[in-house]
Amino acid sequence: TEDEKKIQELLKRANGDVSKAEKLAQSQGNEELARRLREYANK
C-alpha cells in the first residue's frame, strides 16, 4: 500500500531504526504515519 511504501522509505532513511523513523514521521507532522510505523514494527 501507499502507507507501507512511506513506512519503508522512512525506515530506509532511519537505517531500519523504528524509533528514529517514528520521530522522522512526527517531525513531518505525520502522527498517523508515526502510529502506523509503531504498529508495523510490532508485527
Rank of each mutant, 00 (worst) to 15 (best):
K43H: 09
E22D: 02
I7V: 06
S27W: 09
K6V: 13
E4N: 10
A34S: 04
A34M: 07
N42D: 09
D3A: 10
A25Q: 02
E2D: 13
V18R: 04
K20N: 05
E39A: 08
Q26P: 00
S19G: 11
E2Q: 10
S27C: 15
S27Q: 14
A25N: 00
E31Q: 10
A41R: 10
E22S: 09
R35T: 06
A25L: 10
G29N: 05
E9K: 05
L10C: 07
N30T: 04
L33T: 02
N30M: 14
L11N: 00
I7G: 01
D17Y: 03
L24G: 01
R13G: 05
A41I: 13
K5T: 09
K6Y: 13
V18D: 01
E22F: 11
E2L: 12
D17P: 01
L11C: 12
R35F: 08
G16K: 02
K12G: 05
A41P: 02
K12D: 08
Q8H: 10
S19P: 04
I7F: 09
L10S: 02
G16Q: 04
Y40W: 13
R13M: 14
K20C: 15
S27F: 09
L37E: 00
R13E: 10
R38L: 05
K43N: 10
K43W: 11
E22W: 11
G16N: 06
K12S: 09
E22M: 15
E22C: 15
R35W: 07
Q28N: 07
R13Q: 14
Q8I: 14
V18I: 12
L10Q: 01
I7E: 01
L37I: 15
D17K: 03
D3V: 14
K23P: 00
K12A: 13
K5I: 11
E39G: 03
Q26G: 04
A25V: 03
S27E: 15
K43Q: 12
G16V: 01
L11H: 00
E4C: 15
G29Y: 08
I7P: 01
A34R: 04
Q8S: 07
K20T: 09
A34F: 04
E22N: 03
E39W: 06
E32Q: 08
R13Y: 09
A25E: 01
E31I: 12
E31F: 15
D17G: 01
L33M: 06
A25T: 01
A14C: 15
Q26M: 15
R36C: 07
R36A: 11
A25M: 03
A21M: 03
L33D: 03
K12F: 10
K5G: 09
T1D: 14
D17I: 05
E39T: 04
A21Q: 01
R35C: 09
K20H: 07
E4W: 15
Y40E: 02
Y40R: 05
Q26V: 13
A41E: 04
L24M: 13
G16M: 06
L24F: 07
E4D: 12
K20F: 11
Q28A: 11
A14D: 00
E4I: 14
T1W: 14
L11V: 04
